[in-house]
Simulated scan of single mutants.
Amino acid sequence: MIESSALEEAVAALRAGGVIAYPTEAVWGLGCDPDDEAALARLLRLKARDPAKGVILVAASIEQAAPWLEGVSEAQRATLAASWPGPTTFLVPDNGRAHALVRGDHDRVALRVSDHPLVVALCEAFGGPLVSTSANRAGEPPAMSADEVRRVFGEELDAVLEGELGGLLRPSTIRDLATGRVLRS
């Protein structure tokens, strides 16, 4: 059960340009508004992540991801619909919608539609996709609990949305939509 006041606090933090932590399918994640340049830059600084790498966007539904999917063929949409919601992140061609810090040095955007109830509720309450990147400093293992998140980031986050991990043993598979090639299994 998701505590509505905690969800409201996390959404308010996101809308105010904050960076939050929340549980995902396999590890704890950091998130922010993917259209807020200052929030994106802050999230990357917190992680000490190379901006060239880009980040994943997570959505509650294919409809939420639709602005990033304009230009994707019907066959490719069918591939997405057959896999989502679920633990597969697809690299889709950038149609100009993604911020440069989301994309990194790539011509594709990493998108996932989650089936994790808390992630879905968070994206629905926020009204769109969020950045979803593992809650850790670059080169360190991802946090597996809210306590670990707090140990790593202390007071640097604007909200920590309590909840359970989704039970997967590893982060989502990353697959190139155009080629089908698996980049992370």
Rank of each mutant, 00 (worst) to 15 (best):
D176S: 13
A16M: 11
R175K: 13
Q64H: 12
T173F: 00
R137E: 14
E164W: 09
R170C: 05
T173W: 01
R77P: 00
G128N: 11
G180S: 13
V72T: 11
G154D: 13
E74S: 15
A48L: 03
P142M: 15
G71T: 09
S185V: 02
V152T: 15
A138W: 12
L122M: 10
A75T: 04
D35L: 11
V160M: 06
A82S: 15
V113I: 13
D35Q: 14
R45L: 06
G17V: 02
P93A: 13
A66G: 07
K53M: 12
L161Q: 02
A98Q: 04
T89H: 04
S172E: 04
P67I: 01
R77G: 00
E25D: 15
L118M: 12
T173R: 15
D115F: 04
L30H: 02
E8V: 04
W28L: 07
N95V: 01
S61A: 12
N95F: 06
G154K: 12
E148W: 04
G127Y: 06
I174W: 09
A60D: 11
A39N: 09
T173Y: 03
A98W: 06
S4V: 11
A12R: 14
S185A: 15
D176I: 11
R170V: 07
T173M: 11
V109I: 15
G71Q: 08
E148G: 06
D33F: 04
G86C: 10
E74Q: 15
V160T: 08
L40H: 05
P67K: 05
R15V: 04
S172H: 05
E155N: 13
A78L: 13
W84C: 07
G127T: 08
G17L: 00
D50W: 10
A121V: 03
Q76K: 03
D50Q: 08
G96Q: 11
E70S: 13
R45V: 09
R97I: 00
G31H: 02
G166T: 12
A10L: 02
Y22V: 01
A10I: 01
A178C: 12
G167E: 05
H99K: 00
A100Y: 00
G17M: 01
A21G: 12
D107T: 13
E155P: 07
G17Y: 01
A75R: 10
G54L: 08
G163P: 08
L168W: 13
P117R: 03
R97N: 00
A138Q: 15
T24A: 15
T133R: 08
G104E: 06
D115G: 13
C32L: 09
G29N: 06
A135I: 01
A12S: 14
C32T: 10
G139T: 14
I56H: 03
S83Y: 02
G86S: 08
L177G: 10
E25K: 05
A65R: 03
A146Y: 06
G127A: 07
F90I: 04
D105E: 12
D36S: 12
W68P: 01
F126I: 03
P87H: 07
N95S: 08
